[in-house]
Each structure stands twice: as C-alpha cells, then as structure tokens.
Amino acid sequence: MAMLYLLPALAVFGVFMFWPLVKSIIISMQGTDIIGRPGGFVGLEHYRHMFSDPAFAKVIGVTAGFTLLTVLPSILIALAIALLLQERIRGLRFFRSAFALPFAFSVATASVIFGVLYNPASGVINGLLSYVGIGPFGWLTDPDMALISVSLATVWMQLGYNLLILSAGLGAMPEDVLEAARLDGATGLRLQRSVVIPLITPQLFFLIVTGTIHSLQSFGQIYILTKGGPENNTTTLVYSIYEQAFAYNNSNFGYASAQAMVLLLVVLVITAVQFGVLERRVFYR
C-alpha cells in the first residue's frame, strides 16, 4: 500500500527524468532525420566529433572561465557583506533588508536590467565611467569583455542566495566560542580568520558546490545578454546544447545530447565529490 503513496512522484520521475535519461543516451547515438527528429543509429560518431571539434574545446574553456569568474567572486563578496552585517552598526536592520533585495530578481529580470546598464550608447555604466575619463566599453559586444560582463551580472544574481546562507551560518555561531576567543585576545581580522571562517566552512563548502553546479546550468543570462556571442566567447556548455538542438532550427539533437551527457557527467562528479568531502574534511560542531 505504501507504494500507492510513492506512485505519483515516481510516475513523474519515471516519465520526465529516468526515461529521458536513457533516451538522452540513445539520442546521443542517433542522427537527425529529414523532419528534424532523431533517427538512424550512428554509434559514437557524435562523441568522436565532439572531442575533435575545436569549437567544443572552446565551449569547455568558456564554461570553465565562466565558472571561475562567478562562483568564488560571488561567495567572497557575499562573505564580506555577511561579516560586515555581523558588526554592531547603526541601521543594521535597514542594511540587512536592503542586501536581501537582489534575491527577488529572477535570471530574466536581472539580465534585462544589466542589459540596459551595459548598453554602450545610453548605458549608465559607461556614462558613470565617462566622469572619470574611462571607456566607453562595449561590455557585451567586445569579444574580450563579454564573458566578464555576463559573469559580473551572474555574480550579482548569486549574491542574494549566498548572503542568505552565510548569514544564517554566522547567526548560528556558538556565542560561547566567540566569547572564549575574545577573552583570549582575538579581535578583528584575527578573530574572523581563525575562529569565524573555520566555523562556517560547512556553509562555504556547500555554496562552492551548489554555486558551481548552478553556474554550469546558467542559461537565461547568456540567452538574454549575448546569445553566446561575440565570436562564441560566451557560449557555455548549456548554451551550446541549446544552440545545437534548438537555435536557428538546427535540430542537431544527437550532437546536443552528446554534449548534454558531458554536462551530466561533470555534475555527477561534482556531486560525488561533495558527498565524499563533506563527510570528512569539513568542520562540524
């Protein structure tokens, strides 16, 4: 009888997760027929093509760059804010609520705002920089800058969530430990580095792992801001999957699925590392 209670969820998982997983593997070994549906067995052809395709090598490079430029910067800025908000400052309540606001933004709403700010002609960022005599920059059109600009917007999008998690961790800090450290003469940065940071390693580690997975899955900001360009410099793995399968009526489902399997593998490895490391290396009290 218990199975009856599991059935609704299991049915959804079966139809929309586990079967598609099998199907993805199958499609990654198929070509595309004339009406744009997957068909015809091609074996490992897509994989062979993928690993010899310089365009795909570039996709992996861009994905790695995007991850590096988003995950740690966003966590570090959030950590700085979270630590400052632990101080006894006037207007603390106001600052706390204000810094939570970015969290209300979806990828789409934040991306559109950043698109307006980045606008080379009328954008506020170039405008403000003109006061100090820098620029103007083609934030999203300059091949050297586009990835940085999209990453910057993504850092902002992640900030709210990181801040929530870190603030919760800092708020749950055992007061007696802090007290003891202070009595031993630890203050300021020394207190932060030797006592506070080690105590929130679980939260930091959690954010690094989830942040990395989240970054790997990013799509909306690239679609809205750059469409993968200029010169494919912002074409990440997920965007590449989209482009191969869905953009310009490509219907290259087989090749896109092979790339999707790479994404799946990377995320699975990161998750495995999370479970492996989490148990041993991270400080729990």
Partner: peptide
C-alpha cells in the same frame, strides 16, 4: 526507493531537456 528520490536531485535538468522537449 529513498535513494531513487535522492538521485533525482543530482541530475541537471538541462541534460535531459531534449527528450523532454520532444516528448
């Protein structure tokens, strides 16, 4: 069964979006 439920949390949605779309 609980493992099956947990496993769904590890699959990135984007990696199975093509068969779901076709379906």
């Amino acid at each position: 069964w609980f493992g099956v439920f947990l496993a769904t949390m590890m699959i990135p949605y984007e990696s199975i979006i093509i068969p779901n779309y076709l379906f």
